[in-house]
C-alpha cells in the first residue's frame, strides 16, 4: 500500500484567540504550531495500514518553510517520507491548494489511498479532499470514523443522525477522516530522532505561485460575546449549597 496523507500547519491556539492588528491573521507570537487532530488521526491510520500490509506513508503539506516542523512531527509517529510544497507564507484558498496537491501527488505517486482531514483546523473549508478526488478522477468519501482495507477495496463508516452508515469503494480512493477513527500513538524517542535526521523533499515556491480565488478574506475578528465573567458561587465544598440552589433554579435536580 502506498498511502499519502495531506496535513496543514496551523497555530496552536489555546485559551484565547488573538488577531493581528491588520486583521489578516491569527497572532502567533505566543503560540506554537500543530496540525488538526483529524489529520493526525489520518497519519496514524495510514501508518497502521503500512505496518499491516507493508508500503510507505508519504506526508505532504503546502505551507511556509517552517511547515517542515509539522512534517517531522508526522515522521516521528511513523510516516516514511515527507514532501513540502513551499509557499511564501500567504494563505491559500482551497481551489489552488487542491491543484498544487494534485500536481505533487501525480509527481510522487502512484498512491493507493490518499487521506485528508475532514476539515482544516483554522479555515474549516471542508473541501480540499473532495476537490483533489475530482481532479484525479477518484472516488471519495468524507467524515470517516472507521476504515478497513482489503482486496483492493475499502470499507468506510461514519455517523449519520445517530446511526452508522457504511461505504464501499474501490481503490485507489480519497478519504477524509475525523478524529476518533483511532487513538494516535505518541512519538517514540527513536521515532523523534529518526524524524529529526530525515530528509524532506522540498518543492520550490516558484512552482506553485499564489493566486486569488473567488472567495476572498477581508478581515478576521473575534466574536463579540466571548468575554463574560462568571459569577463565583464560592470556594471548595463551601460552594455546594449555592450550587444546589442554582441547579434547582435551572430545573435539573431530580
Amino acid at each position: 500500500m502506498e498511502v499519502a496523507v495531506c496535513v496543514k500547519r496551523v497555530p496552536m491556539v489555546g485559551g484565547k484567540i488573538v488577531v493581528t492588528a491588520d486583521g489578516q491573521d491569527v497572532d502567533t507570537r505566543m503560540s506554537g504550531f500543530t496540525v488538526s487532530p483529524h489529520e493526525e488521526c489520518a497519519v496514524e491510520e495510514a501508518v497502521r495500514l503500512a505496518e499491516r500490509d507493508g508500503g510507505r506513508v508519504t506526508v505532504l503539506t503546502l505551507g511556509p518553510a517552517a511547515a517542515a516542523d509539522q512534517l517531522r512531527d508526522m515522521l516521528a509517529i511513523g510516516a516514511s517520507r515527507a514532501v513540502l510544497l513551499e509557499t511564501d507564507g500567504r494563505e491559500w484558498g482551497p481551489i489552488a491548494t487542491a491543484a498544487a496537491i494534485v500536481d505533487a501527488l501525480r509527481a510522487g505517486g502512484p498512491y493507493d489511498l490518499i487521506l485528508f482531514g475532514n476539515e482544516a483546523a483554522d479555515t474549516g473549508g471542508f473541501q480540499v479532499g473532495v476537490r483533489v478526488a475530482h481532479l484525479l478522477g477518484l472516488p471519495c468519501v468524507t467524515g470517516i470514523k472507521h476504515l478497513e482495507v482489503s482486496g483492493g477495496r475499502l470499507r468506510a463508516g461514519r455517523e449519520y443522525r445517530g446511526t452508522e452508515e457504511a461505504y464501499d469503494l474501490p481503490l485507489p480512493a480519497v478519504v477524509s477522516v475525523k478524529e476518533g477513527i483511532n487513538l494516535p500513538r505518541y512519538p517514540s524517542l527513536p521515532g523523534r530522532l529518526r524524524a529529526k535526521r530525515a530528509a524532506i523533499e522540498r518543492i520550490e515556491p516558484e512552482r506553485y505561485p499564489w493566486h486569488a480565488e473567488g472567495l476572498r478574506k477581508e478581515r478576521l475578528r473575534v466574536p463579540p460575546a466571548q468575554n463574560k465573567r462568571a459569577e463565583i458561587l464560592g470556594t471548595g465544598a463551601g460552594a455546594v449549597p449555592a450550587l444546589v440552589a442554582l441547579l434547582d433554579d435551572l430545573g435539573v435536580l431530580p
Binding site: 458561587l233 471548595g236 465544598a237
Partner: peptide
C-alpha cells in the same frame, strides 16, 4: 473557562463533586 462560564466554583473537583452528590 472562568471568562466564558456563567457561574463558577473555585475549588478541587475531588472535593466539590462528592459533596454535591451527597447534597443532592
Amino acid at each position: 473557562i472562568i471568562a466564558r462560564a456563567d457561574y463558577a466554583v473555585i475549588g478541587d473537583l475531588n472535593e466539590v463533586l462528592p459533596a454535591l452528590v451527597a447534597a443532592i
